[in-house]
Design a binder for these strands. Structure first.
Length: 194
DNA sequence: TAGGCCATCTGGTCCT
DNA sequence: AGGACCAGATGGCCTA
């Protein structure tokens, strides 16, 4: 069990800041294995990831073979793979998505928007769009600043302080292929994305 | 109640 | 072979 998934599956999950939907409250959050399950025994002490049976009783963890999804799936070769293998794959995928969500949380923390408990957390798509627009806006601002400094220098009205390396400070910024849109003109307005 | 958002499971594909 | 990545499907929660 990795250090993260334990909290994801515990009751503290609902208290994780920023986590909009606690895993414990999400259906199909895993499979339920009764304590007497032969699988649970054969798989050894169940990891938190592979055997979320200690979750809230409100959760409807089902045997995959009896779940609606499981029964709907055609019996493919992979479908017949060992249950423990499948559960390990599921756990890895879960962990991967958690890592992705953690990265999105870190992104939300550094882009400017109203962070407040009363403000709904940015959706994933809104986070990405807002981050993109923020980067473009910063690039525009930097370019504008560079032009202003160049202009002032050409006028000879401003002298740089001793030791100030303008060239090093104002390294050229890689411009996007297309002219960066403004936040207002961008059709992918994050505020309307959620 | 419909729609948006989300977490999870699942099978396929690609890479090491 | 195993892991990472991806997209589709499914169902739960929340809000207008």
């Amino acid at each position: 069990m990795d250090s993260n998934s334990g909290s994801y599956y515990s009751n503290e999950t609902s208290q994780v800041p920023g986590r909009r939907t606690p895993l414990g409250s999400v259906g199909l959050g895993g499979f339920y294995f009764p304590p007497s399950s032969t699988l649970a025994v054969s798989a050894g002490p169940p990891s938190d990831e592979n055997c979320p049976g200690h979750l809230s009783p409100n959760n409807r963890f089902q045997d995959p073979s009896q779940s609606s999804m499981g029964s709907l799936q055609p019996l493919t070769k992979k479908n017949r793979q060992g249950k423990t293998v499948r559960l390990n794959i599921n756990a890895r995928e879960r962990r991967r998505m958690h890592d992705l969500n953690d990265a999105l949380d870190e992104l939300r923390a550094v882009i400017p928007y109203a962070h407040s408990p009363s403000v709904r957390k940015l959706s994933k798509i809104a986070t990405l769009l807002l981050a993109k627009n923020y980067i473009l806006m910063q690039a525009n601002a930097l370019e504008e600043l560079r032009r202003i400094i160049t202009y002032i220098q050409a006028q000879g009205t401003m002298t740089m302080p001793p030791g100030f390396d303008l060239q090093a400070t104002m390294l050229p910024v890689q411009q996007p292929d297309t002219p960066p849109p403004t936040l207002s003109s961008n059709q992918s307005n994050p505020s309307s994305a959620s």
